[in-house]
Design a protein around this nucleic acid. Sequence first.
DNA 1: AATTGTGAATTGATTCACAGCT
DNA 2: AGCTGTGAATCAATTCACAATT
Lengths: 205, 205
Amino acid sequence: MTRVDIPRKSIYRLSIYQRCLQRLKENDVDTVSSEALAKAAGVKSTQLRKDLGYFGPLGTRGLGYNVDSLSKTIHEVLGRTKLQPVILVGVGNLGSALLRYGGFRKEGFEVVSSFDLAPKSRTSAAGIPIKPMSQMVDYIRANTVKMAILTVPANSAQGVVNDMVAAGIQAILNFSPTVLDVPENVVVNSVDLAVELENLSYFIR
Amino acid sequence: MTRVDIPRKSIYRLSIYQRCLQRLKENDVDTVSSEALAKAAGVKSTQLRKDLGYFGPLGTRGLGYNVDSLSKTIHEVLGRTKLQPVILVGVGNLGSALLRYGGFRKEGFEVVSSFDLAPKSRTSAAGIPIKPMSQMVDYIRANTVKMAILTVPANSAQGVVNDMVAAGIQAILNFSPTVLDVPENVVVNSVDLAVELENLSYFIR
DNA sequence: AATTGTGAATTGATTCACAGCT
DNA sequence: AGCTGTGAATCAATTCACAATT
């Protein structure tokens, strides 16, 4: 079973299951049924089982899943076994908020440096270096950084992306309101706040 | 053709087409083929035509789509004909960054007020009122607000949601890292930064 | 007795292929 | 001649149903 034929949405849900498992662990629950976990994650139990099924039999029939070991397995599947360095590019409003929002660290990601065309200071409020854009490419190469968070204005996004991809970035979390063109070995997840709001507004009467 | 049987993903893409049309308009292009527009939006031309097809024949065979009128139609379809009031709940790091980030206004959304358990000041840097949480429900009712941006910690999210839904909120853009339980007439779009990163990390070698 | 794991059936979305306009 | 609009075909994801296992 190669990685490619597992639906991307299943991978997505794995992260959600992981978060639910964490909460169960905090409450000292050590076994959970697909029914219960699915409910917490907001999906059907059959879907949960199908999702987990891609990675081998992980549960015990008649009993359920061991919270601790399932959580460990998902961790491994997602490739989250060690701290992953990430850079953030574009220290404007949103960028600096994300730097301040320390929540990534807890999940195994470390924002090791940020970059901006015209840094207003040398470090962010949270103590993360803010370097001039001109140093980005060298930094990515020197530290073999594979992940980037992109919070630059829409019109400069594609140019920055070309540079980071050439330097070795393989995954981009894009907040710039634009469609990025990348080679197929690079993966992009886009979060467009205006699109999300616009989409919601369709559904209100 | 009722609203319900149009795929949600099509609605999503409408917003993206809209953005591309805007850019074309800025460049004084007045006609565009499905081929060209689809390329700009990063989708196949057949998909674009199918998406638009749900809302009637919008183009001219042999010619393409009129940029201006297509843009207007999408605007209407998305229900974005007048400024839509939105509240933001939870003025922490992320919440205050979003208040500062004025980008919504341009897209037809106005953050009319924000709420926090313990407001540190009466207005945000951008001049948006920050009111105590206890006033949220009355405010929603008094101003018939239908949309909310939720940026509270995970453990208080569900409680806040119950209150806002009871007061009349119909659509929620949720940044709290948790699964929300809402009645089916309420729609939630969740943006979970940690999940997005985790998902990306699966795809890097 | 309970609950997983999984082929088969179903439902949903995308793409094809081409008829129908301009 | 060119390009849209759309039913049919394909491809993908979800759900069902039940045998297998503890």
